[in-house]
Amino acid sequence: MAIEVKHLDHRYGEGTIFEQYALKNVTLTIADGEFIGLIGHTGSGKSTLTQHLNGLLKATSGDILYNGESIYAEGYSMKELRGRVGLVFQYPEHQLFETDVFTDVCFGPKNLGLSEEEIKRRAAEALALVGLDESFYKQSPFELSGGQKRRAAIAGVLAMKPEVLILDEPTAGLDPRGRDDILGLVARLHEEQGMTVILVSHSMEDVARYVSRLVVMNRGEKVFDGTPREVFRHYKQLEKMGLAAPQITYVVHALRERGIAIDEDIMTVEEARDAILALWRKNA
C-alpha cells in the first residue's frame, strides 16, 4: 500500500474574496505498481492533489500516508519523500538551468546527498531510459528540440529513482509524435521498472490506452474512480464536467442506440474494429 490520501481538504486565500476550495474531502488509495490516470478539467484540483502527494503543498485538513507513515508527522523528511515520489511538472523543460544536459540531470540525485559515482551512474541511467544517448550529455539543454528538452527534464526526476512517478500533463504542447514518444516512455517505465505511475491529463484519449485505473476530479472533488471502462460508462456526466470519453465510445453508443448489440465497454478503435467485423461476419 503505497499512498493513502485521507479526507484531504485544501483551501486557498482564507478570509478573502479569493477563498476557494482547491480540494474537498478527497480520499484515495494508490497501491504499489498501479498505473493511474488522473483526469479533470482545468482547475479541477488535479495538479493541486499531485503537489500534496510529495509534500509541496500542505493540506488544510486531512492526512496522507506514505507506506503507512503520515507525511505530516513531526520529523518526517520531506526531502526523502520527494526522492521517492517523483513529480514531473507541466512544461518541465522550463526548470532546466544547467550548462549541459548531464549536469542538469545530476541535480536531483546530488540533492539527495549521494556519492559522486552514484550520481553519475544514476544520471546516465536516467538519460538512457528517456532515450538520450551520450552525444547529448555535453549539449546545452537550451539547444535541444522541444521533445528532447522534455525528455531531459523527465530524466532529471527519474535520476532520483523514485518509487512513484507523477507526471502533470506530460504531453502538453507536443506534436502527436512527441506525445506518443512520451506516453510510450511512461508506459515502459511502468512495465519495465515497475514504477507506480500517476498520469495527470485532461485528455481521455491519451490515458485510455495506457492506464488501468482512472480517477476523475471535478471542482476539487473526486467524482469517479475505477477502470477506464467503468468510468467511460458515465460519458454523459463526464461531458457535463467539460471532459469527453474517447471518440470511439460515442460511436459504440450510437450503434447501440440503433439496436446493434455491440459491447458498450469498447475503448479503442482496434477493439471496435474487431467487434464490428465479428458482428458483420455473424450476420452475413
Binding site: 520527494r82 511538472f89 541535480f107 536531483g108
Partner: peptide, 13 residues
C-alpha cells in the same frame, strides 16, 4: 512559485 516547487520536487533546498 512554480519553478521553486519544480526544483524542490528535485530535492532543492
Amino acid at each position: 512559485d512554480k519553478i521553486m516547487k519544480a526544483q524542490m520536487a528535485r530535492g532543492a533546498d
